[in-house]
Design a protein around this nucleic acid. Structure first.
Lengths: 366, 366
DNA sequence: ATCACATTTCAAACCGCTTTGGATTGGCAC
DNA sequence: GTGCCAATCCAAAGCGGTTTGAAATGTGAT
């Protein structure tokens, strides 16, 4: 026993457990002691490794339950090098400080999937000029295993950045003109707005206004493309006078609607990028003593936000409908697949929007 | 050198760094080697401990910057036993699956404060029957240092639970009839609605309808109390026929408004718990050819949600106004104080709402 | 009895940081 | 020269898990 000469520990320090929790918190070592097994075996038993006797595994499982053992996440993360967390970086447009209203429901959907898979959801709200730094930090500090990119712009710089950093990511939406391919989940905005436009055309409308979101956002560009394609297919020229691209608020909807309706050659139908904006337009219509659905038709896009239902039973607005919450679920599932390195899983998901017929549309009345 | 006899390591294994990152990621040990210092000293230098030479500290800081050293969060968390993260448990009402629309802006405010203080924001969306389990897990797995409690109900069971678990927490709102005191940040809902009611009374209104949120929510109870107190002070009896308690959506606002206005003895003013609901009421008013602000007065509560501005420049609705985002900041700051064990900091914060005069109110026209 | 081999278990290294308890050095008073 | 103290720095022991490499045990074939 020569190496008993090794210098003895300086202090007989009190169990860290006691120091930290005030009481003895059940941890792996403790549990192993109670079971008269090594921590190795206990760890393996609980994690389902094959090289442990089935009988032992059951003993371990029983003891773990009995003592309510929960492995310490911090330790797992360090030991495995995985963060078991996913980051959502929410850009806060510095200029107008708007939080995308869609984001709460998206998160709710994604959150479901994360918690089912043992992942935490890390939210960081950053003003958009800090975004790059935020991503770099997430990477170098290792707080997350992957991220979801929200509200992509056209040719979004975050995509090459994340590619370079080597963080797995999924984009909610797409970024037109991205040089490299990237994983995304999106609604077929183009098709949805094309169909909606066709529907209005079929009803006899010829002057259809487009009330779009800000057109540096990718989804807005695609919606416009769909609208223009449908018009072009019928040989109807697009008229910039009845197209707008603004923040999607009730007030801007009202303002735009009022201006158009009282202008010369007013539109007989509106195609609107958001249900909130739609509320404003409806107000502008009714203000003029007109009736939505009879005198003026309106189609909105409905993200199925939980606090903004399009009618309880029968829909108020005719709408292109697609659940953001479901998009959240899908994006989360795709991201987890990427993180796990599951090959073969699809990397792109295009969700079709339904066209829901409500009470806000009707035939053009010459 | 006797204890060189200690059995040698079995394998000359490759640097873990290389294995994990594919390249040598700068970590504390590496940085220390480059500086020809011990990890201890480097760590202390970077964390501002006093026992390191100022010259050394500068050398270290320079090197850290040069090599872009970022300490690994996972390791810090394990070593310190702090999670450096705060949890927000968002209850997802299982019945109607509603995500509180206020929550996005609250988070945005809180997030600011967290990131300034080096805390992560962990979101977990749980259906409300899983809530207790969620809190217990957060505790026993040690993923967060504290939590924010959202949407408190009257005599909320989460408060005693968190007290028992010993997790620092701050409630956004209050829970009437809680047996023990607890830290909270809230708007003076009672006072706000009392003042708003008084304002309407002063304008000559006598039939004032209350369109409230669901009255198992604490804020709704307090708003009602304020409303009733103001009426009582003028000797006006409350009339349940013109009081409602529902989900605060546009449609329910419209439905309730329409029913009341076309009923017998209609109200001449509405006091409404949410701007969204207010939009519905306005629609019901205008539908009848009446004008809001002239024929019927409306006061709403405005949380200053970023995507639902009450007018761009001059306010549309007369409103009791209070920024949820600011509440988020305050709650986060309070929670961090609690986590750090700062004594003496206030544990309760009552924010007063402003009464903003907009275009939706006017004198009662006999 | 012996050897090859599969099964089950374990000791110790490791993840990357913090923190404890010295060790070392130099200056200054005695 | 000695003792004391402050200023600096360091080795090693942690945090609570996972993972590696090997040991112990049992089993069937030779």
């Amino acid at each position: 026993m020569i190496w008993a000469l090794t210098p003895p520990p300086r202090t007989a320090n009190i169990p860290a457990n006691l120091k930290r929790f005030g009481c003895t918190h059940m941890n792996l070592k403790e549990l192993a002691r109670k079971l008269d097994l090594s921590p190795t075996t206990v760890s393996r038993a609980l994690n389902g490794y094959p090289e442990v006797n089935e009988a032992t595994r059951e003993r371990v499982a029983a003891a773990a339950k009995k003592y309510n053992y929960q492995p310490n996440t911090r330790a797992i993360r360090l030991a495995t090098g995985r963060a078991m967390a996913v980051g959502h970086v929410i850009p806060l447009a510095t200029r107008h400080e708007i939080v995308n209203p869609v984001f709460a429901d998206f998160i709710a959907g994604a959150g479901e999937v994360y918690s089912r898979n043992g992942y935490d959801l890390l939210l960081s709200v950053v003003s958009d000029d800090d975004e790059e730094r935020a991503y770099r930090e997430l990477k170098s500090r290792g707080t997350v295993d992957g991220v979801i990119v929200h509200s992509p712009r056209m040719r979004d710089e975050r995509i090459p950045l994340l590619h370079d950093l080597g963080i797995p990511f999924v984009v909610h939406g797409r970024a037109t003109d991205s040089p490299r391919p990237y994983p995304w989940v999106d609604v077929n905005n183009r098709r949805a707005f094309q169909r909606a436009t066709e529907f209005l055309l079929d009803l006899g409308h010829r002057r259809i206004a487009l009330m779009n979101g800000l057109e540096f956002m990718d989804f807005a560009l695609r919606r416009r493309a769909g609208y223009e394609a449908a018009l072009a297919a019928r040989g109807i020229p697009v008229d910039p006078a009845i197209m707008a691209s603004e923040e999607m608020t009730e007030t801007s909807g009202h303002r735009l609607g009022a201006a158009l309706l009282s202008g010369p050659n007013p539109p007989t139908a509106f195609l609107v990028s958001s249900i909130i904006m739609g509320l404003g337009i409806r107000r502008a219509i009714e203000e003029r003593g007109l009736q939505m659905g009879r005198d003026v038709s309106v189609i909105v896009h409905d993200d199925e936000l939980s606090y903004l239902r399009n009618g309880d039973d029968l829909p108020i607005f005719t709408a292109t409908r697609s659940s953001v919450r479901e998009a959240g679920r899908q994006a989360a599932a795709m991201l987890i697949g990427l993180i796990r390195g599951e090959a073969g899983a699809p990397r792109e998901l295009l969700m079709e929007a339904e066209l829901i017929i409500g009470q806000s549309t009707g035939p053009h009345r010459g």
